[in-house]
Amino acid sequence: MTARIDTDVAVIGAGPAGLFAVFECGMLKMRCTVIDTLEAIGGQCTALYPEKPIFDIPAHPRIPAGELIAQLQEQARPFTPTYLLGRRVETLTQSPDGSFTLGTSTGDTVTAKAVILAAGAGAFGPNRPPLENLEAFERTGGVRYLVSRREDFRGKHVVIAGGGDSAVDWALSLKQVAAKVTVVHRRPKFRAAPETVAQMEAAAARGEIELAIPYQLHGLKGEDGHLTHVSLATLKGEVREVQADHLLAFFGLSMELGPIAEWGLGLDRSHVTVNPATGETSIPGIHAIGDVATYPGKLKLILQGFSEAAVAAHSIHPRVFPGEALHFEYSTSKGIAAE
């Protein structure tokens, strides 16, 4: 279903910086619509390492990435943002009045007075395995590239393919609820944190997880898009079948600016150059924050993205409310504007 939305600020990217931008804009009474290529909010925190701890978020000595995203979503909730997920921005045009119209890959149209580009290092999409009839199994949820609800896999046979942190983390997590978890990797050495690899290997020794090594994905079996088995093969051509209700393919994310590269923004090696005092790009009204933004002294830290979100929101306010004075107030005295 396509949408036609009129909003104050279009936020491209639902990672930590983008979500905090919703809060900062909301505090200034600006409405946001958030667009992301992934099916769930959180960006890399959700897609790559939801259970990995982050240690440099102020006031949180240790917080799992997934929990950080949940807290950011709750922080933004009073301002009722609209989320358009599983689609990417394909077109952007500017009207004579200065507003922007964004068109998405699913046919949505979003009109906004300003744009915040928070797309990480680009538009993220999963690296998809080259398997026959893959799309049919994707549509039914038989093949997935991220986990949004662990309960979806309770009592199911789950095959996890990959050798990085996401594969190992979710193998350890899902073994607690799934009927069986099989991890497929083409070699014994994993690229994940040594501690979690050791935990997975110990679980395999106890029979809690099956390690299919050295194997790689060979094919999918089922009817009407409903997965029943995953075929695995060795480099020597030996093939075996594993019962599966779901295949989780964790081969990382492909990162590219995509259509954003054609918007005429000042680019520096696939990053967008901004004025650090405002976050504004070479096009007035379009701001960039987080990993996609670059300027002298830039640090690729989540906490710096948070700061950039606040700077961008305050810079955008005069564009959304021309002629209205903005008096800076601390949140402790101002409270939540939406309440």
Rank of each mutant, 00 (worst) to 15 (best):
Y83W: 13
G42P: 02
H60F: 15
A70T: 10
P53L: 03
T80P: 00
P58Y: 01
R31M: 02
T80K: 14
P50R: 02
V34T: 07
F55K: 12
E39W: 09
T91S: 15
V89R: 08
I63L: 14
E67F: 06
D36Q: 05
L84C: 10
T37C: 13
T93N: 10
I54W: 06
P53T: 04
E74N: 12
E39L: 12
V89N: 07
T91N: 07
A59E: 14
Y49W: 13
P53N: 13
Q71H: 14
G43V: 05
C45A: 15
D56S: 11
M30G: 11
L48V: 11
G66A: 02
P53K: 01
H60Q: 15
T80A: 14
C45N: 13
A59K: 10
E74S: 13
R88L: 01
L92N: 04
Q44W: 00
K29I: 01
V89Y: 10
T37D: 09
P53Q: 03
G42C: 07
Q73M: 11
M30E: 02
E39N: 05
Q71E: 14
P78C: 04
R62Q: 15
R87M: 12
T82R: 14
P61K: 06
D36I: 07
R77K: 14
V34D: 03
L92W: 09
G42S: 03
E90D: 15
I41E: 12
M30V: 09
A70H: 10
L85P: 04
A47N: 04
Q44S: 06
T46F: 00
L72A: 12
R62W: 01
F55M: 00
E67K: 15
D56V: 09
Q73K: 14
I35A: 04
Q94I: 09
P58G: 08
L48D: 04
T33L: 06
R87P: 00
T46L: 00
A40I: 07
K29N: 15
E90L: 11
Q94F: 05
C32I: 07
T46M: 14
P64T: 07
I41M: 12
P50C: 02
I35H: 04
T93D: 13
R87V: 14
P81A: 06
A65E: 05
P81Y: 08
I35M: 09
Q94M: 11
R87D: 07
I63C: 02
L85I: 10
A65V: 10
P61T: 09
A70L: 11
T37A: 15
C45G: 06
Q73L: 09
V89I: 05
P61M: 05
C32P: 11
R88K: 07
P58K: 03
P50K: 08
Y49E: 01
I69W: 01
A59C: 10
P96W: 03
R62F: 00
G86W: 06
A40N: 13
E90A: 11
E74F: 04
F55T: 08
E90Q: 08
A47K: 03
P64M: 08
L48P: 08
R31C: 08
M30W: 10
F55D: 09
G43Y: 05
M30Y: 12
T91K: 00
